[in-house]
Design a protein around this nucleic acid. Structure first.
Length: 505
RNA sequence: GGCCCGUUCGUCUAGCGGUUUAGGACACCGCCCUCUCAAGGCGGAGAUCACGGGUUCGAAUCCCGUACGGGCUGCCA
């Protein structure tokens, strides 16, 4: 029986873009932390920016999280007692909280126009002065403010920062104690002139109302935290524990962006990565269970994860290591699981599409399942993602003829004795059938190995010629297994074709 | 400009005052294995712990500066 705890964390993406790997790591840490403590992992969509938020992004984010296996206990699609979990659907709640703060004198209306504010900011900036709202509207009397509001004058609502409060200190689970002088904070806007709430307001309101115990998020919010603490205080709420995560950088040490190639989670899915491997790799970016362990399951992550071990400095994303981890996961998969994951990469491959024997549907694969199950050991050590599979094994599906690589022909077929090797190979392989031996890679290997032995030549010489004839290239997966999979008739046919390319004997 | 934060091999990191000639992993190089390519095994190179001062018998580890990098400084989130 699992003990319920009061640990409640949330992942709160704003749908202004797709789920990128930085966000994914934040989600992973939140998820691991919640699961470790038998707490709740909540998904909340922060779509308060109407300009940039889209439904497409929301669905993409949800799809990505599902693919990563980070299922949430409360949020879109699953509901929960603290919904709705989409901020645009919570405006009534924010209005009530604003009213509450008006009554408790924690906010005041500001009639300054954006134009005026910008002008002041520019003057301050030009004078190299520290800019902060000058609080001019804070001095307006309540009566006057009421009258101006009643008259329909546009206004925002600002937080009335307690001037006598003293410095703000909080204990970040990752960064430790952080103190900011209250003089650094200005009376920031909580509600825009159109009545919609701003981020710094809603994020606190929701974390408060949803009883979030730990706020684990990107460190771009570290500087906003003191402001938010003031909002919690204005709301009369308990301040949650904060844990800020450093960002993930591109190989040039700059913030990850489009020019670094794939940044979205779905780009990795589409590039043929396993979600388990991605989760494992991303977990390692900024956190390590110890100095040794690299590969760990989600279960182990749940057990070992520790906010205090999260690194404070930004991590550079390294595709090499992801590739290595991905291959490790592919190697560890059962043949069945590997085939199931591989199947769509074969049936949907454009490269394979025109080959006579390529699978067109999962039914095709199912019909020859035992044949397909033999692919994993053949290719798994040679591919980094499933996307690499089709080009690696296209030669298996081309029937009696295979496209011969020009360079390979030059190097391995247009050489002395190649014609002889192929001819003997044909006779030798044919004899497997004659002697009623099964067409297995063991029998094929035994038969073919006798060739260089009898001719007293280097095995490589013979096998490379045969390899080019069968696989079309001097680099390929193992030869004998390939011959076994291609079958006797097509193998012999390919050897005959290849003879045409050898020097005349 | 102001405030906040960070800085250990190319990269991710271990390290929380002595056990460290700074450990592991990826990448790199070499050897072995070998039907090619991989994979695997073994080995190698690679970090004056950003720099400069302290504190201490002793510092990568604690403190203070400096440099560099990042974040915030919006009626964005």
């Amino acid at each position: 029986m699992t003990t319920e705890s009061n640990i409640r964390v949330r992942f709160a993406p704003s749908p202004t873009g797709n789920l990128h790997i930085g966000g994914a790591r934040t989600a992973i840490y939140n998820w691991a932390f919640a699961k470790q403590h038998n707490g709740k992992f909540i998904l909340r969509i922060e779509d308060t920016d109407p300009e940039r938020s889209t439904l497409e992004n929301t669905t993409q984010i949800i799809r990505s999280l599902r693919w990563l296996g980070l299922n949430w206990d409360e949020g879109p699609e699953v509901g929960g007692d603290f919904g709705p979990y989409q901020q645009t659907q919570r405006s009534e709640t924010y209005k009530e909280l604003l009213k509450q703060m008006m009554e408790s004198d924690h906010v005041y209306p500001c009639f300054c126009s954006p134009k005026e504010l910008n002008a002041k900011r520019e003057i301050a900036c030009a004078a190299k002065q520290n800019y902060g709202y000058d609080r001019c509207c804070r001095l307006i009397s309540t009566d006057e403010a009421q009258a101006r509001i009643a008259a329909g004058e546009p206004h925002t609502w600002r937080l009335k920062i307690p001037l006598n409060r003293g410095d703000i200190t909080f204990d970040d689970a990752v960064y430790g104690s952080i103190t900011v002088p209250i003089s650094e904070l200005d009376d920031f806007i909580m509600v825009r002139s159109d009545g919609t709430p701003t981020y710094n307001f809603v994020v606190c309101a929701d974390d408060y109302l949803m009883q979030i115990s730990h706020v684990i998020r990107g460190d771009d919010h570290l500087s906003n935290t003191p402001k938010q603490i003031l909002v919690y205080e204005a709301l009369g709420a308990t301040v949650p524990v904060f844990a800020h995560l450093s960002m993930i950088l591109g190989s040039d040490g700059k913030r990850l962006s489009k020019r670094h190639g794939a940044t979205s989670v779905e780009a990795y899915r589409d590039a043929g990565y396993l979600s388990d491997a991605l989760v494992n790799y991303l977990s390692l970016l900024g956190w390590a269970p110890d100095g040794e362990t690299t590969i760990f399951s989600r279960e182990q992550l749940k057990t070992a994860f520790d906010l205090e071990r999260v690194s404070k400095n930004p991590a550079v994303f390294d595709a090499n290591k992801l590739n290595w981890i991905n291959r490790d996961y592919m190697k560890e998969m059962s043949a069945e699981a590997f085939l199931d994951a591989l199947a769509p990469w074969l049936t949907e491959s454009e490269l394979l599409h025109n080959l006579p024997l390529a699978p067109k549907s999962t039914d095709d694969i199912y019909a020859k399942r035992s044949w397909y199950l033999q692919l994993q050991p053949l290719i798994v050590e040679r591919i980094q993602t499933f996307a690499d599979a089709a080009p690696m094994i296209a030669y298996l599906f081309s029937g009696p003829e295979v496209t011969l690589d020009k360079n390979s022909v030059e190097k391995c077929l247009r050489v002395a004795d190649a014609n002889k090797f192929l001819q003997i190979a044909i006779e030798t392989l044919a004899s497997i059938n004659d002697s009623k031996l099964a067409w297995t890679h063991e029998n094929i290997e035994a038969a073919l190995r006798s060739i260089p032995e009898h001719l007293a030549v280097k095995p490589k010489l013979v096998f490379q010629a045969i390899r080019v004839a069968i696989c079309g290239n001097m680099v390929s997966p193992p030869l004998f297994e390939s011959i076994a999979l291609i079958g006797r008739d097509f193998t012999l046919a390919r050897l005959e074709v290849a003879k045409e390319y050898t020097l005349l004997a």
